[in-house]
Amino acid sequence: MSLVDQLKDQMKEAMRAKEKVRLGTIRMALAAVKQIEVDTRETLTDDQAIAVLTKMVKQRRDSIAQYSAAGRDELAAIEAAEIQVIEHFLPKPLSEEEIVELVDASIVEMGASSMADMGKVMGALKPKVLGRADMAAIGAMIRAKLK
């Protein structure tokens, strides 16, 4: 079952259970996926849908930081609840050890020896960690290893 189909099924369950936050969040996710499908005029693959959901989580984390800094904890709590719903549909996150192993393997595989090779390593890693790890943290890790 595709990720979009899972979202639709969970939306129906949220409607039946009258879970407003979960229902609203799933509808937002489906709307974001549909918007990209309309813009590109093609059906999204699961990997592309995961990228959309990952972007939504990142946006909400940024919002939480801004709301917390402004003392708007009630809005930060809403964003945190939305993150929990979205993360239910994302693959299991990689552990720190798994990320280190993947980074090391990609550096060796690409024959990277300097910062000029960072793009190659990031390009090789991105499909492997999509939706399962923060690319900014991985970029910092690669930068530290290639210095």
Rank of each mutant, 00 (worst) to 15 (best):
M118Q: 08
G71K: 03
K147Q: 15
M11G: 12
I107K: 03
Q6K: 15
A105G: 07
T45I: 07
R22S: 13
E96I: 11
A29T: 07
A140V: 09
A31V: 14
S106L: 07
K55N: 10
V57H: 00
K147A: 12
I26C: 14
Q66C: 04
K126M: 04
E101V: 03
V57P: 02
M135E: 05
D117E: 13
T25P: 01
M28I: 12
D46P: 05
E109Y: 13
A112V: 03
K120P: 06
K55M: 07
K55T: 11
M15C: 11
A31S: 15
K55Y: 10
A70C: 11
E96H: 07
K18F: 12
S114P: 02
V52G: 09
L125W: 01
L130S: 02
R16I: 06
A80Q: 03
S2R: 15
E109P: 06
T54A: 13
S2V: 11
T54K: 10
D73T: 14
A17T: 05
A70G: 03
G71C: 03
R143S: 14
A29S: 15
Q6V: 08
S113L: 08
A112M: 07
V85Q: 00
E74M: 01
D9P: 00
V38I: 15
V57R: 00
L94K: 04
V100S: 03
V85Y: 00
K20S: 14
K147Y: 12
L30K: 12
D39F: 03
L23V: 14
A105I: 01
Q66G: 05
E98P: 02
I99W: 00
P91Y: 06
R61S: 02
S63K: 06
M141Q: 10
A124N: 06
E79D: 11
A133Y: 01
V121P: 04
M118S: 08
Q84T: 04
R27C: 13
Q59A: 10
I78V: 14
D9W: 04
S95I: 05
I26W: 03
Q48H: 15
Q48C: 11
M118Y: 03
L90G: 05
A112R: 02
Q10I: 02
A137N: 08
R132A: 06
D117F: 06
E37I: 13
E37V: 10
R72P: 09
D73P: 06
T43P: 04
D46I: 09
V121Q: 01
V52M: 08
Q66D: 12
A81L: 01
E101Y: 00
E19V: 14
